[in-house]
Design a protein around this nucleic acid. Structure first.
Lengths: 138, 138
DNA sequence: TTAAGTGCAAACAGTTTGCATAGAA
DNA sequence: TTCTATGCAAACTGTTTGCACTTAA
């Protein structure tokens, strides 16, 4: 637990009440909050934290490579603290729920050389779309 | 050529000068323009076309399923007219160039049942990231 | 002590919407 | 003729930035 916070500390990142709260809010598995949701949750622990600080802090965590930005097509970006275990996303087309899933093979292998258009490919991002059990039942 | 326009006509879509121009601008392979780029190109052919109309028209094409919205993490959404041949995207991490690539197997098969969290998965979206030949050389 | 982080508010980009007018069918 | 699409401008959402103040190290 609070793995994200540990990682940030370990990198000698200057720690403040605001940064600690953002890291705590964002930590965990299957966490994919928007900046605004992070802000709302952070306010519960530290009422005077500002939106700008939340945005700045999230941006820095992304730059540090400790948090991943997930563009889910919806309006706002989501932030995923699970940056060190490679994984893909399973998204509910109706309610937007997201779960982390782990690749079985090496998806890079699925792109044959003649399909690479001369690119040097280093990363693959996979999003599975469907209905979550709850929405499928409704 | 002008395949998109044909498809839209074939669906009995009410045709106007503006809609035709948007369809013409967006048509082709490896086309992934932002709404603003579509607007700029449309203005060259029809100076009085408004931004709102371009946004509305693109939105309708997406609803009709004739155009795909691509969220490339950058700021603005991109629009892809190649809606009927399933394909994935190869994105240059530096300049944002996008190419269409075609899947080799059935990527849905890569997600074992125990990883589905009860979702009924119907679609997969794959984005390969790397450097295009031009950026790799620079 | 001092460089770095914070809050505020204002600026910004991308997108959507309300309403009167124009135009396709 | 009639119903839908258009243009304009204003509203909106998500995000970034400039600047004076505060604070961790």
């Amino acid at each position: 637990m609070s793995d994200l916070l540990e990682r940030l500390r370990g990198r000698g990142w200057r720690m403040t009440a605001q940064r600690r709260v953002v890291a705590e809010v964002l930590d965990g598995d299957h966490v994919h909050l928007t900046a605004d949701e992070v802000h709302a949750a952070a306010i519960a622990k530290l009422p005077e934290i500002s939106r700008a600080t939340v945005y700045n802090t999230l941006g820095e965590m992304v730059t540090l490579g400790e948090v991943i930005e997930v563009a889910t097509d919806g309006r706002a970006k989501r932030y995923d603290p699970n940056a060190h275990r490679p994984h893909h996303h399973l998204v509910c087309a109706r309610c937007g729920a997201i779960r982390d899933v782990h690749p079985t093979g090496n998806p890079l292998a699925d792109l044959p050389a003649q399909e690479r258009f001369g690119f040097s490919v280093s990363e693959v991002e996979v999003t599975y779309r469907g209905l979550c059990p709850h929405c499928a039942a409704a």
